[in-house]
Every structure is written in C-alpha cells, then in structure tokens.
Design a protein around this nucleic acid. Structure first.
Lengths: 264, 264
DNA sequence: AAAACACATTGATTTACGTCAACATTACTT
DNA sequence: AAGTAATGTTGACGTAAATCAATGTGTTTT
C-alpha cells in the first residue's frame, strides 16, 4: 500500500468525540452552542449569512445532542419537532416495510441536515441511525420558521436544503431505475469522496462508515453484489480496497463507468 | 364491462380545456386569476388559508399558462423562477443521462405543485412534459418567499409540500430498491387511484394518461414487464384492463401484493 | 490467548426481468 | 376509407443480479 497523504486514522479524527459521555445510548447536552464559532460554518445551515444573521442562528440552535454508534437520533413514528445539523459523526436514514425489508434512503455526514422528512405529517418518516459516535445541533423547526420570516437569507437557505434533497433523490431514482451494479457503485463512491473532499479530506481515499449490506440497501443491490463489484474494480486497478478502506486509483475510469458519455 | 359509475369520458372532463388556444405549443395567458374562486382550493397551495390569506395568494398567482399535450412546461437547464400549480391536465417529470437513458421521476395531476427541483441551483433539474392539454398557475418563487414571511400558514404549507415530495421519493426508493415488478405496479395503481379519488373521481376506475413505457420508466421496469404484469393481474381477476382504461376489481388483493404484511 | 461474533469474499446455481422479435390494436393522416 | 405510425401484447431466449453456501478476516469478549 502506498504511503498515504491522509491516513485512515486522520480520516476518522473528525468524528471522534473527545468529551466524556455519560454512558447512556443518547444524551442531551445542554451546553449553549455558537454557530458563529462552529468550524462547519461553510457547510451547515449558516451558509451565506452575515454576522448579525449568524448570531440569530445561534438562538435557533438551542442544544446539542450526542448519539452513540448504533444509536437512534429519531425513529419512524416519532413526533417531529426539530431538524438536526450533524456536527460530527456519520448517519444513515432508512425506512422499512411491514414485512421487514429495509431501504437505506441516505447517508449523512458533518454539516448536513437531517429530519426534513418529518415536516409533512409532524411525524418522522424514517429512522436515523448513527454509524459512528455522533453529535448534532438540535434546531427546533418552529424556531427555524420563525427566524426564516425575519431573515430572507435563512429562508432561502432552508428552501435550498429541501430542494437539494429532492434533486438528490431524483438522482437516486435514476440510479435505482436505470443503472447497473457497476454504475451505481461508481456513482456512490464518487459522491462520497466528493462530499468528504469538500470537508477537507482526501479526494481519493476514504474509510467507509457503513457495511456492504448498507451500501447494497442504499443502491438496491445485495451485499454479495457490492462485494463482487468492489473486487472487480480492484482487479481492474480502478480502486484499492481493504475492507472499509478504499483508495480511488483511477477516478476517470470511475467517472466513465458512472456516466459513459461525459468522459470519452 | 359493467356499467360505470364514472365513464372514461367523465374522467377526462376535468382535463379538457374549453378555452380557445392560439395554436402555439405553449402560450402565456395574462388573464388575472383568483385562487379564492379556484375549484382546486382544497388541494392546491391555498390549503388551510383563511380569506385574507387567500386574497394574498391571489397576488402570488400572477398568470396562468397553457401547455399542449406533449409540450414542455420547463426543461432541465431552464432558469428557475416560478413554481407551478396544476389547474388541469397531467404531467410527467423526467431526467435523462448523457447517454440518453430516461427516468420518469413523477406524475403530477391537478392541484399538485411542480418545479421544486429548481430551487437549489436556480436552474430546473428535470423536464416537465404535459401528457394531456394542461393549464398551470404560475407562482413566482420570489413572491412565494415574500408572502411566506408575512403568512406563517403559507410558509408552513410550502414546507409541507417540499417535505411531502421528499417522503414520496423515499417511498420510490423503497419501491425501486426492494420491490418486485408486481409490488411496484400494485403500489403505483393504488397511489394513482387514491389521488384521483381525492379529486372526485372513482375509487376503482381510472384512465392512464401515460404509456406502458412511461410507467415502466417510473417503476424501473421495461414496458414489456408492465404489459405482462397488467395481463397477469387481469388473468387473476384483480383488475380489468383495456388499453389505458383500468378498473380495480379487487383492491384488497392489490394492497396485499403491494404490502404483504398489513393485509393478512 | 482462545472463543465468539460480525462482516466480507468467493463460488455454484437460480430467477426475475430484460432483450429480441412478431404480431395486434388503436389513433392519426391524407 | 385506406394507409401509416404509435402503442400494446405475447412468446422465446438471454443475462445481471439474487440466492445459497462455504470460507476467510478482523474485532470484541472473556
């Protein structure tokens, strides 16, 4: 394995929780929080807000909340009251049918917003599970709406976040409806690494926070197919895989697989 | 065929355009419009607004616009400026890859809102195609945002519309990722007929506005599979199919196929 | 250090749906 | 009314991914 610009350890760093946990699966941290000082400022809700607006946002983010690996931030059926901005950690959202089939609907990382599905019916529609120890900012939706009325920039931002989720899901429908296993996995890897890169991580290396089964569920495939496709990419020299660690050796090859036309 | 409570002709009625068209593919109707008098009041944007709020909404809906069958309301790449409320007619939204594969992302009918995908990037992300002659209310998004600030009920309503689209697409991911052809088509039919019923049509009969190919694209299946599955349902006495006309004979059987557990 | 467990890989076989192709029906054109 | 195009149906066959199963690897527990 080549020497790494970003070691797997470094990649994990952002998500580690240095504070002492009280041992419960979840706990509410009543410490006051300041968006204006948050190092996710560029990614999270505050995007594009000036100082006075940032201060207002501080009022929205009343509390933080920690979720241990494997813990639930919320479950389908819970009453909806807040959106959550991920500070650290990694989540999956998933829904299940009565007969126990599960569909992962998304993977969310630091700076992303979770819980939009609850707005329609004031009830959460999916489960949000922490795939590693995580911390989120709790943003009561009533407050978001209240401040949105005073701050058009915030209002617009909220709308863009929701629209972007709609567009992402449109893309997933294309994946699930039209693409073959290799295309889906290529698209998945490119998307993941791009979002990690936007957060200061390597543009070519990543450590998967989810199992093959969870990737498969997200992509509408079985875990064996994910494993086989990883192996195939690896044999072709496109990626290097060692369990959860993935290094993209030929990003262009991956792009070509995902979207045959654009990369000729 | 039994005598019909709602004939196919009746079902078509709502969508017919009685006004004279000027012959162009699309045209902008500058006639002032009143939401307060609209017969879609219960379904469309105004849901839950009182009289003074309804009047404000009238100001948002500046114009109407007609789209002929096969015409485009907007295309991917068009600059986004307005949402559209469907007054009459039926639309599909779809996206395509560079190499020409098409994915239908939704079918929209009277009272539903179209164009939410454009908000993130101020550019439409999909094509909206009229599957029959249609008329929409043009709602400039800047105005929607402006009035949302003054009318919390409207603000909440806009949020719910967006959230509901997210939830719908979550459901589609479940369909596309986990369900077999029969389950998908059963779910599709149940959803269509339920939405039509909410608009005063029959709870058991419908006339499809889309081809087998378009249904297939939406459901991630090929047109032959749609055709075969229709035939199978028909042979089993669950539905009666004659081209675009469908009558649901055994709604419970359909529900059981869609969701094996809930109906035992 | 060994045992137990969760997760990942790989092979053999099956299957649901896709592909290809012929034909039927309806709607559109002139 | 006849001819043409678009859409829908049905059959024969092929295939990508699922299923079943065995084995490997890494991590946690005691």
């Amino acid at each position: 394995m080549d020497e790494l610009l970003y070691s797997p350890e470094t990649i994990t760093l952002l998500s580690l929780d240095n504070l002492v946990s009280n041992g419960r699966k979840m706990n509410i941290d009543t410490l006051k929080v300041a968006c204006s000082n948050c190092n996710l400022r560029e990614l999270c809700m505050p995007l594009g807000l000036d100082n006075s607006e940032l201060q207002k946002l501080d009022e929205i983010v009343a509390t933080r909340r920690k979720v241990k690996q494997g813990g639930l931030l919320f479950s389908a059926g819970d009453t909806f009251s807040s959106l959550f901005a991920i500070r650290t950690g990694f989540f999956k959202t998933c829904i299940s049918t009565e007969d126990g089939r599960e569909q992962v609907t998304g993977f969310q990382m630091a700076g992303e917003i979770i819980g939009l599905d609850g707005i329609v019916n004031d009830i959460h529609n999916c489960n949000a599970v922490a795939l590693e120890d995580a911390e989120v900012c709790v943003m009561p939706f009533a407050k978001i709406e209240e401040f949105s009325r005073d701050f058009p920039v915030l209002q617009r931002h909220v709308h863009k976040i929701m629209s972007s989720e709609i567009v992402r899901e449109n893309g997933m429908m294309m994946m699930l409806g039209n693409m073959r296993a290799e295309e889906r996995l290529a698209g998945f890897l490119l998307n993941l690494v791009q979002r990690l890169h936007a957060r200061g991580f390597s543009p070519s290396e990543l450590v998967l926070r989810m199992t093959r089964e969870e990737i498969g569920s997200y992509l509408g495939l079985k875990l064996e197919t994910i494993s086989r496709t990883f192996s195939k990419f690896s044999e072709e020299g496109i990626i290097e895989v060692k369990q959860r660690y993935v290094k993209i050796l030929e990003p262009d090859a991956l792009k070509k697989i995902f979207n045959p036309q654009t990369c000729y």
